[in-house]
C-alpha cells in the first residue's frame, strides 16, 4: 500500500476485505479530493464522477511535469511527493507544493501556454485531470460543472487579489526608495 502513501498494515480481516471489496486507493483519492478547494462542497457522488476522470501519473525526481511555454491541457493534484514551481524566465523557485496541493488549474479554462515550469523534487504521484475530461463533465453533469467552475473562479479571484496586494506593496516600496 506504499503506493497510496499508507504504511504497511498487518494481515487483519479488515485488510483482506479492503483489497477484495474496494478499489485500491479509492478512499485516499476521495480524501485528497475533499481537501482540494476546487472540489469543496461537493458530495461523495460528485466526487466519484471527478475521480473517474483522474489519471494517476508517477514522476521521478527532477522530472518536469510541464515546462513554461508548453500548451496547458491539465490540472494536477499531488497525491504524494513534492513539486517545485519555477519561474518560466529566471528559473527561480516561486513556490513549493506538497501532498494535497494542486497546480495548473488555469489549463482547465484556457489554452494559453504555461508561464511556469513544474518539476518533481522527489518521486511524486500526481492525479491529472485534462481539460477535455473537465469539459465532458460540464457537458454531461452541468450542475457539477457549475460548482467546480464557481470554485475555480473563486481560487483565481483570490490569487488575483493576492497578486494585486503584492503589486501594491512593491509599488509603495519602490516609491519610498525613490523618495529616500
Amino acid at each position: 500500500m506504499s503506493e497510496t502513501g499508507e504504511g504497511a498494515e498487518p494481515m487483519s480481516e479488515a485488510f483482506l476485505w479492503k483489497n477484495v471489496t474496494r478499489k485500491e486507493g479509492r478512499k485516499n483519492v476521495m480524501d485528497i479530493l475533499r481537501g482540494v478547494p476546487l472540489f469543496e462542497s461537493l458530495g461523495s457522488r460528485y466526487l466519484r464522477y471527478i475521480e473517474r476522470v483522474l489519471h494517476r501519473r508517477t514522476y521521478m525526481e527532477g522530472e518536469p511535469v510541464f515546462r513554461a511555454g508548453d500548451r496547458g491541457f491539465a490540472l494536477y493534484i499531488i497525491e504524494t511527493g513534492e513539486i517545485a514551481i519555477l519561474d518560466g524566465k529566471t528559473g527561480k523557485e516561486i513556490t513549493h507544493l506538497r501532498e494535497g496541493d494542486f497546480f495548473g488549474e488555469l489549463a482547465l479554462v484556457s489554452e494559453q501556454p504555461r508561464d511556469a515550469t513544474a518539476v518533481a523534487l522527489k518521486e511524486s504521484h500526481l492525479y491529472g485531470m485534462g481539460r477535455a475530461d473537465f469539459l465532458d463533465i460540464v457537458e454531461t453533469h452541468p450542475r457539477l460543472g457549475v460548482l467546480v467552475l464557481v470554485n475555480l473562479a473563486r481560487v483565481i479571484a483570490e490569487r488575483l487579489q493576492q497578486a494585486s496586494i503584492q503589486l501594491k506593496r512593491l509599488t509603495e516600496t519602490g516609491e519610498t526608495d525613490r523618495g529616500e
Binding site: 489519471h55 501519473r57 514522476y59 522530472e63 511535469v65 510541464f66 508548453d70 500548451r71 496547458g72 491541457f73 491539465a74 489549463a107 491529472g128 485534462g130 481539460r131 477535455a132 475530461d133 469539459l135 465532458d136
Partner: peptide, 19 residues
Amino acid sequence: LVRMMPNGFFETSLTILYK
C-alpha cells in the same frame, strides 16, 4: 491508453483522444 503514454505526452494524448 493514456496510462501507456510517457509523461511528456500525457496532456497532449488527453487532448488528441478528446478531439
